[in-house]
Nucleic acid binder design. Structure first.
Lengths: 115, 115
DNA sequence: TGACTATATTACTATATGGTAATATAAAAA
DNA sequence: TTTTTATATTACCATATAGTAATATAGTCA
């Protein structure tokens, strides 16, 4: 039996999956996309996303715990920014991959072969 | 107000999130890791992962629907392989990112500041 | 044909989690 | 101090989904 790839323990797989899980929510992606390269406070993020304050705070907490965003308090406000800029490259990759997948599906559909 | 990043519709965000969601399961990552560059049938994957046949079939179906694996039938057997090799680069990135995050946490812990 | 085998599907349960309303906290202002 | 404001937290409900057992399906072999 040939060894295919790097050995990954169940624990490592769980950690990697957890990271993906954080990115697997449209609202969290929306927050990251809204942040981009700038720094926004919670209210600004609430407005940018159109979601409720409690929900946004919860998502921000999750993003913060995973180290994807940084947090800075200034008086009553909390300013958030993207801590791990690599996220954007990651999303670009996934974007391209999804796009390719959809194109393939569309070609199959046009050919009349959904298979 | 400055435009930060690319505009992404809610629909696009949902598609990207869906892709991440597929990768957000340890068992599916385990399957992809087991497959690597080789082709395995369902039974071989069942053995490699230590999970049940029904569960593996279900996960393979999900991976297939997202276009992450390809499927080839040969008699009674179904052989699966990784269709989107970019996945591995993606996982490497996430791996590095998680690693960095954990290292940061560890440094904070050693400093006595969990903050 | 009928038995056997590999895989897929279905039905079910248990768990996780997103959204929301209500509330707590804590900093600023009056 | 009291009030106001921004954010975080808690409790709750509704939904999604991983794992599993049972069953269906379909190819192979006798």
């Amino acid at each position: 039996m040939k060894k295919q790839h790097r050995e990954l323990s169940d624990e490592a797989l769980e950690l990697i999956a957890a990271r993906f899980r954080v990115l697997a929510e449209p609202m969290r992606l929306k927050i990251l996309n809204a942040l981009g390269e700038v720094e926004l406070n919670v209210n600004e993020i609430v407005e940018a996303t159109g979601s409720g304050q409690a929900n946004i705070s919860k998502h921000l907490g999750i993003l913060f715990n995973e180290g994807l965003v940084a947090r800075r308090k200034e008086g009553l406000n909390t300013y958030y920014s993207v801590a791990d800029k690599q996220i954007f490259a990651l999303c670009e990759n996934v974007c391209a991959s999804v796009d390719e997948h959809l194109a393939t599906k569309q070609r199959a559909f046009k050919r009349g072969a959904t298979k």
